[in-house]
Deep mutational scan, measured.
Amino acid sequence: YFCHCCSVEIVPRLPDYICPRCESGFIEEL
């Protein structure tokens, strides 16, 4: 997954599918 807020590849935090770095939901499956 790619976080558009951090502009990095991340492993989303489940079950909410949010970025573990910034806690944004603005992520996209690569």
Rank of each mutant, 00 (worst) to 15 (best):
D16P: 04
C6H: 02
E29Y: 06
P15Y: 03
R21M: 04
P20G: 07
C5F: 08
Y1H: 06
S24K: 12
P15R: 05
C6I: 01
F2I: 12
C5E: 10
I18T: 10
P20L: 03
R21E: 12
E29N: 08
E29A: 12
L14R: 07
Y1F: 11
F2C: 04
E23C: 10
E23L: 08
S24M: 04
L14T: 11
S24W: 06
G25V: 10
G25E: 10
I10D: 05
C5P: 03
P20E: 08
I27M: 06
I10Q: 04
F26G: 15
S7T: 14
F2A: 00
C19Q: 01
R21Y: 13
C5I: 13
R13M: 11
E28R: 03
S7W: 04
L14G: 12
C19N: 03
C22S: 01
P12C: 02
C3R: 01
Y17R: 15
I10R: 06
G25W: 07
P15T: 07
R13K: 13
E23H: 14
Y1R: 02
C5K: 09
E29W: 03
C19A: 02
P15A: 10
V11I: 09
R13L: 10
P12S: 04
F26A: 15
F26V: 14
P15K: 03
C19P: 00
E9W: 09
V11K: 11
Y17V: 09
S24A: 08
V11E: 15
I27G: 11
E28P: 06
F2G: 01
D16S: 08
R21L: 05
E23T: 12
V8L: 13
C3K: 02
C5H: 14
H4C: 05
P20S: 07
C19G: 00
R13C: 04
C19V: 00
C19T: 00
H4K: 14
F26Y: 08
I27D: 04
E29S: 10
R13W: 07
V8P: 03
D16A: 09
V8N: 03
I10C: 06
Y1I: 10
D16K: 07
C19M: 00
C22H: 07
C19Y: 00
R13S: 11
E29K: 15
C19I: 00
E29Q: 09
C3S: 01
V11N: 13
S24E: 08
R21W: 06
H4W: 06
R13H: 11
I18V: 13
H4F: 13
P12R: 04
C22V: 00
G25L: 12
I27E: 06
C6D: 04
V11L: 09
F2E: 06
Y1N: 14
H4V: 04
E23Q: 06
S7V: 09
F2Y: 13
P15V: 03
S7F: 08
C6M: 01
